[in-house]
């Protein structure tokens, strides 16, 4: 059975058994998103397999965020079809933690309210997640009391608490001081090692190179080029990608 929503654009497929690594987890066809005149995403086709790690790079305004946000319905697509075989979690550039809840509260709120999880059960899980992101001691403090890098790690734990099959990251380190991006990136690295499926919009080229299985270059709403990190960074084919790589590496 499949459930359609958001203007019939996203089709959520119920999965009877757990997806195997290598099964298709997301398939998007002819995705177009227009904002009153501006075409942010232009007839994009995309698919990925469970366990895959995809990095999306590209200049500002190229439609990376819009593409990513269409996957979980934060942007309603103008045209196209999204087949999603699983659930998503998202990590935002500006963390968007709930400021009136403690770190623990942030992590447990959705599992309790959405999945009806029992409090002690989910708190045990939250404890594990806090350990995963290295912030056990911040359990009972409020987001305002911790640094940006710590907030972002809590945000990752919050998303993971819903047991998503696919994690979406929209420039998770762009709002952070350069010297603390490493703490967030190493958590993401850990997830990658645990076989989490991830789509990461990022400006961290080194991270994309080291962690991604596949890198996609977007420009003007289109996916211009894609390939292994090696192909994209060492042997860029298109002029635009070469220009882009030149501008970011000074």
């Amino acid at each position: 059975m499949a459930k359609k929503e958001a203007g019939m654009a996203i089709i959520r497929h119920e999965i009877k058994e757990h997806l195997q690594t290598g099964d298709i987890i997301l398939e998007m066809k002819h995705i177009t998103k227009k904002f009153s005149g501006v075409t942010a995403v232009d007839k994009v086709d995309f698919s990925m397999k469970k366990g895959e790690i995809v990095a999306i790079i590209g200049p500002s305004g190229s439609g990376k965020s819009t593409f990513l946000r269409s996957i979980n319905g934060l942007e309603e697509i103008t045209e196209g079809e999204i087949n999603l075989y699983g659930t998503t979690g998202m990590v935002f550039q500006h963390f968007n933690l709930f400021p009136h809840m403690t770190c623990l509260g942030n992590i447990t709120y959705a599992p309790i309210k959405v999945k009806g999880k029992k409090k002690d059960e989910i708190e045990k899980r939250a404890q594990e997640l806090l350990e995963l992101v290295g912030l056990s001691e911040k359990r009972d403090v409020y987001p305002i009391q911790i640094s940006g890098g710590q907030q972002q790690r809590i945000a990752i734990a919050r998303a993971l608490a819903m047991d998503p099959d696919l994690m979406l990251f929209d420039e998770p380190t762009s709002a952070l001081d350069p010297e603390i991006t490493g703490t967030v990136l190493s958590v993401m690295q850990k997830l990658a090692e645990q076989d989490m499926s991830m789509i990461i919009v990022t400006h961290e080229m080194n991270f994309a190179r080291n962690v991604a299985d596949r890198v996609i270059f977007m420009d003007a709403g289109k996916m211009i080029e894609e390939g292994t990190p090696q192909e994209i960074f060492e042997h860029p084919k298109s002029e635009r990608l070469r220009d882009f790589l030149n501008t970011i590496t000074r």
Binding site: N72, T87, T88, F92, N96, L97, P99, Y109, R158, A159
Partner: peptide
Amino acid sequence: GQYEAAKALGISKTQTMLGIILPQ
């Protein structure tokens, strides 16, 4: 961003209003 975070977590609109927006 608060609405977006809530939506990304699958929290319903009513619950978002009651549990996340109004308390803030």
